[in-house]
């Protein structure tokens, strides 16, 4: 165990620290149908507010408009996802969340809005692969057809017994956000569900 020294600095431990990589081969010989990676320390801010938060959002994230229902907008490495009326989730570069939170709060001065840092409370996984939609469908009742849940679409739903926020970043790519304490379960579940397609969980 570490000493009580003042040397401890970022990054700290991520949601799935200490979890070994797992691979199940694709029995058909091809690439694994699912690849899972934690997006370590991806910044996450829960943002609440009505349309009057847009100037602040634009100034701090570059988003020119708030995402419509069930959609997210992408600016560079950042995604701003609609979660509900007056509620958004900003995913940003690791380590930038404090700074963005501070600035947004300044910009929101005088209007009814809230910014809450949920970077550590939530875990983001990058999941991709030719079978990613089939794997998700085993535990998620959303219509995941690539033309229905197309890139740019997001939703909060359930994956088996875990609440998730799902962002389709491509035809075969998603960002899956869940509560940090559910992340081991979600990874276990995904690895198990992808058995027939081959799966690789990478650390």
């Amino acid at each position: 165990m570490a000493d009580a020294s003042p040397q401890i600095r970022l990054p700290g431990r991520n949601a799935l620290s200490g979890r070994p990589a797992i691979t199940h081969a694709n029995q058909d010989g091809g690439k694994p149908g699912l690849v899972i990676e934690e997006l370590v320390h991806l910044g996450k801010l829960n943002i609440r507010g009505a349309a009057d938060i847009l100037p602040g959002i634009t100034a701090q994230t570059g988003c020119q408009s708030l995402p419509e229902n069930n959609r997210f907008v992408t600016i560079g490495e950042r995604h701003l996802a609609w979660l509900g009326p007056d509620e958004y989730l900003l995913l940003c570069e690791a380590g930038r969340e404090d700074e963005i939170q501070t600035r947004l709060r300044q910009d929101f001065e005088g209007i009814h809005a809230a910014v809450t840092n949920v970077t550590d409370g939530l875990c983001a996984l990058g999941i991709r692969g030719g079978s990613v939609r089939k794997v998700l469908a085993k535990g998620c009742a959303l219509d995941l057809h690539e033309e229905v849940f197309a890139a740019g679409q997001c939703a909060q739903s359930l994956l088996s017994h875990a609440g998730i926020t799902l962002l389709a970043t491509g035809e075969t790519r998603f960002v899956l956000v869940c509560r940090t304490s559910f992340a081991p379960y979600v990874v276990d579940w995904l690895v198990d569900a992808a058995l027939e397609y081959g799966v690789s969980y990478r650390t």
């Binding site: 229902n69 069930n70 509900g84 009326p85 009742a141 959303l142 939703a155 909060q156 739903s157 359930l158």
Partner: peptide
């Protein structure tokens, strides 16, 4: 009314 048609389990 906000998210569209979803399963009762949600």
């Amino acid at each position: 009314p906000h998210c569209g048609p979803r399963e009762e389990s949600e």
